[in-house]
Design a protein around this nucleic acid. Structure first.
Length: 211
DNA sequence: ATCACCTAATCC
DNA sequence: GGATTAGGTGAT
């Protein structure tokens, strides 16, 4: 697998899941294209074939502080800045470059971890809210069912009264009871105990209380 | 083609 | 955490 393919994958993943980090990466890429790299003629190790083994030395606190401040200003390191920093710190410019490379890599990892934690919390909060809403929906359905049963009971009692006062009337007579489901925003005509007719235009029937 | 520089992975 | 390596890019 090539490094560039990994880059592309990272950018794709970042774009999908971490849009703001993607923006940063994109800015970095754009800056790269805008700012031409300066070219140096000399190699890092001036000693022909004999490679100088630079002992791994822990940077001093002051060195790290200055590097951190510089990194805070700008994550990318242009040659001038690198050389200036190197001379200020008494380090090899290559060391400064490596320090910035590592710092960028670890900063990116940290950002990804932070983003992951944030998304995880968001996800957990959303799940809890989903359960809360589902419970609320169940409660409201139950309330609606109870209200509908109450309406049916009242309508049935009213029909009984009408029937007892007028033996020829039926529920399909011109005196069909009209009811209003008021708070539910529903209007309709009772057809029988479980079905009611909704509106003239809709020509639909709705069943009360499925369960 | 060569060089400087990058990221990602890895070493120590 | 500093350095190295591998594999890449773009400027010269």
């Amino acid at each position: 697998m090539t490094g560039r393919k990994v880059d592309d994958q990272m950018i794709l993943i970042s774009h999908q899941f971490y849009p703001h980090i993607y923006v940063q990466l994109k800015q970095d890429l754009q800056e790269e294209t805008v700012k031409p790299r300066r070219r140096k003629n000399k190699k890092r190790d001036g000693n022909n074939n004999t490679s100088v083994v630079v002992r791994k030395r822990k940077l001093s606190e002051e060195q790290v502080n200055l590097l951190e401040r510089s990194f805070g200003d700008e994550h990318k390191l242009e040659t001038e800045r690198k050389d200036k920093l190197a001379s200020e710190l008494g380090l090899d410019p290559h060391q400064v470059a490596v320090w910035f490379q590592n710092r960028r890599a670890r900063w990116k990892n940290k950002k990804l971890e932070e983003e992951y934690s944030k998304l995880k919390i968001q996800h957990e909060t959303t799940i809890i809210e989903k359960y809360r809403l589902e419970t609320e929906v169940l409660k409201m359905k139950e309330q609606l069912c109870q209200a509908e049963k109450q309406i049916q009971r009242l309508l049935f009692e009213r029909n009984c009264d009408i029937s007892s006062n007028s033996p020829t009337s039926s529920i399909f007579s011109m005196e069909q009871p009209q009811f209003n489901l008021g708070e539910f925003g529903m209007e309709g005509l009772l057809m029988d105990n479980n079905v009611f007719f909704v509106g003239d235009n809709q020509r639909t029937y709705a069943t009360l209380c499925d369960n």
